[in-house]
Nucleic acid binder design. Structure first.
Lengths: 279, 279
DNA sequence: TAAAACTCTAAACCTGCATTAGAGTTTTTG
DNA sequence: CAAAAACTCTAATGCAGGTTTAGAGTTTTA
């Protein structure tokens, strides 16, 4: 080893970088060794080349791509750096917004799992206070109760596409549900009114956002859409028997949905609910 | 096309996903078409399979890897989902912290570029108010002024390694500088005291953090370390001539460093400075 | 019936490296 | 001073999560 020169391994070590990374950077022309032995083809670096390597690492830490870094280093144009950085700044902000949504969604999901684990058995009827909720909803174009799951799936797709079309975060597309007018419910007819996803305060303002008021709800739990008619009937009967007055629209809420099985049914946990008043 | 079945293109379209992605998912067994024509090998999906695909997309949106998703879907174990999500939550938080640092660093760099563009020409002497700063510093083990740039580079490396060793964000390793005791400066001797990087309030608390007080500084601008002795001398002369009293340590601050050129020198913009009092 | 649109498989490409194999070189050790 | 240890070389392969392409075959539409 020449006195002033650093072998690739030494260069790697003092810069906390791997040898293969240095070779890659040589190959793509980001930083070339200042001397290459003609016989052995060994690469040798000068400690002064740290400056360039530092710059590369700094730009990498800013999230720039190697291509961009190379471009910048080659052009020596600070305007170019600046424009890349300004662009990068936007990217980072978007990423942060996304991560925030993710974090919230993860927390919701964990809670949802916890609730699933502790939830009452199928068919249980409860009377619960439910805090107010916000939903992003779309009116249903067909009464899917008459047509079955395929039509429901289509409506759901439309809801999702509506989110995509309006550039809204799809990550909410998990806790879905449907509503039905009080009148239909009381008449014992199943007539879908809206299909929705639950959203939180991070969700952007939109015309399609509605608030469902807090209150006491009579609820029944089930695990399949197929059983909804049967259980909705039971819910109505229960209200009638106990003389609870239904004071708002019926909601079918998907509490948990884990299609973890290989068959094609949605593996679900549902809660049918109507707000009631006590005589 | 069979009536109830969706071709891969249709399935892709209604799920806002690409055909090739669907093929990939088939290949790795994430979601298999419910029917494959034996002759043409065309894939056909059922709209009910949307449930599974939704679940996949949701888990992807949570940042899970395809491998993990597959595992979860195969096991059907909600405990597994939960543990993955809890782990993921940590990851997301770390990522956010990183992005925050990045964002701050990008902003600093953009400002730094702006300053560079509007900065006075080489040799200009100014008297400026400089707000207080925080530095992460290491005492220099050798007086690099006696040995030249290589030794300085080594000291710099040590500073960087100190950051790495203490698990501190390297992203600050950009605006570096050195200090020298007031006495050395006044004696006209170049004796390095500390080497540092500027940090902001995001930087974790550490023993090596010092505060440099705000105040009026006499400054001189230059663009190469090689000129530091010459310009430091001029700075001292200027203070003497104008009878400014030096009231603190000398600082050599790297305002901008863009090693954008292919040679091995640090392409820099420096500001030498001493805090002064007026008689 | 022909053209247009779709789908198939297989392989290559993308980023930013890490890893490995097999051969050659330098440095250290006895 | 030779052998062993440590290092380095090139070239290829792999990773994730896809996208793109080529060339051939299939369905749908006009």
């Amino acid at each position: 080893m020449k006195n002033e020169l650093l072998s690739i391994g030494e260069m790697a070590k003092i810069n906390n970088i791997s040898v293969s990374t240095l070779r890659l950077y040589d190959e793509i022309g980001l930083i070339k060794p200042c001397y290459i032995d003609k016989e052995s083809r060994y690469r040798y670096y000068n400690i002064r080349q740290n400056a360039r390597l530092d710059m590369i690492q700094y730009m990498k830490a800013l999230g720039m791509e190697l291509k961009e870094i190379k471009e910048v280093l080659e052009s020596g144009d600070t305007k170019l750096i600046e424009s890349i950085l300004i662009h990068r700044k936007k990217q980072v902000k978007e990423q942060m917004a996304n991560l925030n949504l993710q974090l919230a969604a993860i927390s919701r999901t964990i809670e949802s799992l916890e609730r699933y684990r502790k939830s009452p058995s199928i068919g249980t009827i409860t009377i619960e206070y439910i805090p107010h909720r916000k939903i992003y909803s779309l009116p249903t174009s067909i009464n899917f109760y008459e047509y079955g799951i395929e039509v429901y799936e289509n409506e759901l797709k439309e809801l999702k596409n509506s989110l995509i079309k309006h550039n809204l975060p799809q990550i909410y597309y998990c806790n879905a549900g449907t509503t039905m007018k009080k009148e239909s419910f009381l008449a014992g007819k199943l007539e879908s009114d809206e299909i929705f996803v639950l959203v939180d305060d991070n969700f952007p303002q939109s015309e399609s956002i509605k608030r469902i008021d807090s209150g006491m709800y009579v609820c029944i739990y089930l695990d399949s859409f197929d059983d909804e008619p049967e259980y909705a009937k039971r819910l109505l009967e229960y209200c009638t028997e106990n003389e609870y007055k239904v004071v708002g629209d019926y909601i079918c809420e998907v509490l948990t949905e884990f299609s973890v099985f290989d068959d094609e049914k949605r593996g679900m946990f549902l809660r049918l609910q109507v707000p009631v008043a006590f005589r």
